[in-house]
Write a protein that binds this DNA or RNA. Structure first.
Length: 311
DNA sequence: GCATGTCAAGTTGTG
DNA sequence: CACAACTTGACATGC
């Protein structure tokens, strides 16, 4: 088992920059490129630093934030790497990160945000989503990430019709995106049960988020959902990818959906212990939460744990 | 310098 | 019907 960090650090001095379309639009095009070039170069440099840091901490996976190249797909200020003065150097930095991750067995992933909705009935929303996914595919190729994980999107009154639209859009995705695309159960609409047969039929691995499952249950037990999701990865010969988080105010403290700073070890499914899988830790204390959970799982009496740092 | 409001995008559920 | 929650800063602005 390996535990993963999502995007950011709490205490370690690694951070990622961004900018807004609004501020870019105040500049002439060449100055936009200059500014974007500096930000992208800094982010590429910090990605390498992030990988060195997670490796040092014994963390085995890292999720790269979607605005890694800020506003790259924006209709007005979007750009290509080749447009940027430091484009070649930026590519070299990404290649270095790719080598480092491969050499040290750090699994990389992406989780495009809520604006990527392949099941939308609005063609413009779908077109924008494809554009955004292709940006992620380009990045994934460059850094060697094997997962681009999305949600099934909205329901629009009929889940099966929505999933059919998602199905119909898949042929329009490049191989770079399609071979990495995964679906995750969410906390309001699509449960593991909803996605099970769809994922199986299309050979799309299911990223099982146990917190979402607990917020949005479907009759399946955690053990059953784990088994189903695990099979969807084994079917394509890949290591399973799951998510864990804890409710900010506990399970009795109102809305359980907001994430807590740390993971309550009691929320970590016993049936995950000792399995071959990657578990992204979605917790606001970031790397502090991952390292604390690693330590706590090691001490858990109920099952043998093989954490990456100990193996 | 420091505090505060802003930031591309979708969808759903709440107040 | 407007708005917050998903996730979360970092940046731009204004004092």
């Amino acid at each position: 088992m390996r535990l993963g960090l999502c995007c950011l650090f709490k205490k370690e001095p690694v951070s990622f920059r961004t900018t807004t379309a609004k501020s870019l639009l105040a500049l002439p095009r060449d100055q936009q490129f200059q500014k974007l070039s500096e930000i992208c170069f800094d982010n590429a440099t910090n990605l390498y630093l992030a990988l060195e840091t997670v490796h040092r901490l014994g963390i085995g996976a890292f999720r790269i934030m979607s605005p890694f190249f800020p506003r790259m797909t924006h209709p007005a200020v979007g750009y290509r790497l080749e447009d940027l003065p430091e484009g070649k150097n930026i590519s070299q930095k990404l290649a270095a990160s790719r080598s480092f991750a491969r050499k040290n067995d750090i699994r990389l992933s992406f989780h495009p945000d809520q604006f990527v909705v392949l099941s939308s009935p609005h063609s413009q929303v779908v077109a924008n989503s494809i554009r955004e996914l292709e940006y992620h595919g380009m990045l994934a190729d460059a850094v060697g990430a094997d997962v681009i994980n999305i949600h099934a999107g909205g329901v629009y009154g009929d889940k099966s019709q929505a999933l059919q639209r998602l199905n119909d859009v898949l042929p329009y995705l490049s191989v770079a995106v399609r071979k990495r695309l995964t679906l995750e159960n969410d906390d309001v609409s699509y449960t593991p049960m909803d996605l099970l047969s769809f994922c199986e039929r299309l050979s799309i691995p299911l990223v099982y988020d146990v917190h979402h499952h607990r917020c949005n249950p479907d009759g399946l037990s955690v053990v059953q959902a784990t088994t189903i999701a695990e099979k969807s990865w084994q079917a394509v010969g890949r290591q399973p990818y799951f998510h864990i988080s804890s409710p900010r105010n506990g399970w009795q403290g109102g809305d359980p959906k907001p994430h807590a700073d740390y993971i309550d070890p009691a929320d970590f499914p016993a049936c995950w212990l000792g399995r071959e899988m990657t578990v992204d830790v979605e917790a606001k204390a970031k790397e502090l939460a991952v390292t604390r959970l690693m330590a706590e799982l090691k001490n858990r009496p109920d099952a043998p744990v093989l954490l990456k740092s100990a193996s």
